[in-house]
């Protein structure tokens, strides 16, 4: 008994010497990490400390620490508020709408691009397709306002063919499809690059073999291309599902107006509005934000596990 204790003590001190040695040996590496660590402590983790507010009744005079604890009151209020439930449902519906309607587009574009033989055309089109990704939704919404304006090109075409002009962005029925279409318009070109890279990596012998078996264009896409990029598709899909509570703040915030506001109101726009436009209740807003972060984080972990099970590799590690 005594000897084993002594052994443990010895190994402990050995371990201690070991990490001291490691620290001394790698002292310059710690120095290189220092700025990032300062950032993480002073900004990332310091901001997380403010989450305590979700369980308090914030009083600016008393600060975060001094404010009174009230437990889960904000969360109870949240779930009894019908508007919150409406916003939560909206967030999930819009998010899944995006997955169903916009997700496949990038894959289709990548496959179509791969079939394109003209190299110059390919390059030019790729530049055009990916360009809008690098603009903010502030700019893009401006371009879309002009394009869909009451007197703009789309409405003029509609009128020229005898249709009736519409206020596209002020129509509760049209606004959600417009969100999806403009999302596809702006982002799918860029997203297709990942799939295109995966397709380029496919062994060309597979295509030759398929050709020998008499496969045509569709046969090759169906039996070679798609199965080969299945892994990439699954990883992208699981990552997207993990982000289900991010329903596109930038886009909705910039394209919304008073007419359609409640139709496309999502958690992020709701938090912004209750905090910065009405009489603010910082604690309640923090609670809504925390709810979103926790669900979001849980989704990422779950999705990572799922991806590991399906593909043998996770997104996180």
């Amino acid at each position: 008994m005594k000897t084993s204790m002594a052994k443990q003590k010895k190994s402990k001190s050995l371990l201690r010497r070991e990490w001291v040695k490691s620290m001394v040996q790698n002292r310059y590496l710690y120095l290189l990490m220092l700025p990032a660590i300062i950032y993480l402590v002073m900004i990332s983790y310091r901001a997380m400390y403010g989450i305590l507010l979700a369980f308090k009744d914030y009083n600016p005079k008393l600060g975060i620490m001094g404010s009174e604890w009230i437990g889960l009151k904000h969360f109870k209020n949240m779930f009894t508020d019908p508007y919150f439930r409406h916003v939560l449902l909206n967030t999930i519906l819009i998010s899944f709408g995006r997955i169903i309607f916009t997700f496949p587009f990038a894959i289709i574009i990548a496959i179509a691009f791969n079939e394109l033989k003209q190299r110059h055309l390919k390059k030019t089109l790729q530049t055009i397709y990916t360009f809008p990704h690098f603009l903010s939704w502030v700019i893009v919404s401006g371009v879309i306002f002009n394009f869909l304006d009451y007197t703009g090109p789309v409405n003029s075409m509609v009128a020229a063919f005898g249709g009736e002009r519409k206020v596209f962005l002020g129509d509760k029925k049209l606004i959600t499809p417009i969100l999806y279409i403009t999302d596809i318009w702006k982002e799918s070109g860029w997203k297709s690059i990942i799939y295109l890279a995966a397709i380029t990596g496919i062994n060309s012998e597979l295509y030759e073999a398929a050709e020998l078996d008499g496969a045509g264009r569709w046969g090759k896409i169906w039996h070679v291309t798609l199965p080969c990029i299945r892994g990439t598709i699954l990883v992208m899909l699981t990552m997207r599902v993990g982000q289900v509570l991010n329903a596109g703040f930038d886009q909705i915030f910039n394209m919304s107006n008073t007419v359609v506001q409640s139709t496309i109101d999502i958690l992020d726009t709701y938090v912004y509005r209750i905090t910065f436009q009405q009489t603010p209740d910082f604690s309640y807003s923090t609670a809504v934000g925390l709810f979103k972060s926790v669900i979001g984080f849980t989704m990422v972990i779950l999705v990572n596990k799922l991806s590991k099970k399906m593909e043998g590799t996770g997104i996180l590690d």
Partner: peptide, 9 residues
């Protein structure tokens, strides 16, 4: 994957 959120920041 996890942050303080708008208000704490």
């Amino acid at each position: 994957y996890f942050g303080g959120g708008t208000i704490p920041t």
